[in-house]
Nucleic acid binder design. Sequence first.
DNA 1: CGGAATTGTTACAGCTTTGTGACACCCGCT
DNA 2: AGCGGGTGTCACAAAGCTGTAACAATTCCG
Lengths: 227, 227
Amino acid sequence: MTTILFVEDEAPIRDLVRFALSRAGMTMLEAGDNAEAERLLASRRPDLILLDWMLPGGSGIELLRRLRRNPELRDLPVIMLTALAEEEQKVRGLEAGADDYLTKPFSPAELVARIRAVLRRATGADEQGRLRFDSLELDPATRRAWCRGHPLQLGPTEYRLLHFLIAHPGRVYTRAQLLDYAWPPDEAREERTVDVAIRRLRKALEPHGAQGLIQTLRGAGYRLDHA
Amino acid sequence: MTTILFVEDEAPIRDLVRFALSRAGMTMLEAGDNAEAERLLASRRPDLILLDWMLPGGSGIELLRRLRRNPELRDLPVIMLTALAEEEQKVRGLEAGADDYLTKPFSPAELVARIRAVLRRATGADEQGRLRFDSLELDPATRRAWCRGHPLQLGPTEYRLLHFLIAHPGRVYTRAQLLDYAWPPDEAREERTVDVAIRRLRKALEPHGAQGLIQTLRGAGYRLDHA
DNA sequence: CGGAATTGTTACAGCTTTGTGACACCCGCT
DNA sequence: AGCGGGTGTCACAAAGCTGTAACAATTCCG
């Protein structure tokens, strides 16, 4: 489920956007100001941040700057919301690292379209929101995955792991990173847990002729890459 | 047959639109004001609402807001009609959740094009406004549902749940989302409530040979999909 | 070549999640 | 007030996953 954090002080606009998002199959986290947003980000990680420019107690750009300095949150796509009269600030927003901007007033369809576009850029999904790599395909909306067109039977952990890997193909991740990114953030887990999950995932791919896609880098971690 | 509800107080414009729609193979329901529109919506479900901004006895936006709060009607696409002089109000229409708007005067071709575009984006109901998936069929207008032609005996909750699922087939929804979308928005409910409702719905489908249509995704939620 | 470190593989116990039936409550109807 | 259908919650049963440990295989390095 795609989760959007909306930082906006006016409640009616929040309601409206929540409605538009829910119709598009997304859920919304809300924050009324920067402080609240940061509190929220400490515990939850949305897929995208929708940030109003004008906020009580510090403008949105401040939050944006702080985000970009935080290694954990740096990759979060941000869409800035500006009123028509604030045209010039839009520029500053983009300079500060926003991925896109939207001028109020906007249509729900436009909002959703922008969000999808930005997310597509950020995650490498195609027009339908599907992720693809080599002979693999994964659809977050239906929570299904295929290999050469054959549906894969994946448990929750295997699915999350494949989802993460396919969204970041080619990169090497240590076991610790994978535990961070593809596991629920609850408690501590043995690093070898990852090995077993990788094994289970490989086993699920094998019967469909996808060998060697998940590579081991001795001493470093794992990587999804062409065989 | 696509049915459009046109809420508009000026008869000449109604005639004009009725003509344009009939040439495009659509039928039109008419209402002169909000009250009449709501009376109509109680018994019939159009595929789209064409809503004039200026109405005697309450502006169109009021109806729009009330629509959006009604779970049964929330998915109905709405196109707002505004006069050129009301340009700025169009903004408010979109903010209230209209899917598109049209500025008077407009050409018949433009009207039909907008309607088609919006309908394409909206849910996949057929010409009679019925929803279908696999062996299931559901008619929002009469609030009835069938499985392989056999009428289903559903309580209100089961009906709303099936309605939502069949309108969004294939997608996975968490228990929290289902509570949001298929339950009255009153108060808090236990998430396990969804399990029980799903169970009751499954039980209602079973006798008619529809097993496995409602799938459980461990750790994620439920999904309506081909077995 | 031998040993150490790293990773692959398997099995299993425990735990979390879900299915299921029962029950009490609410509400509209008679 | 009594009745009955519908709904939310709880408790228990069942199923499915997952983490861990233990052992095998592989790689690395001297």
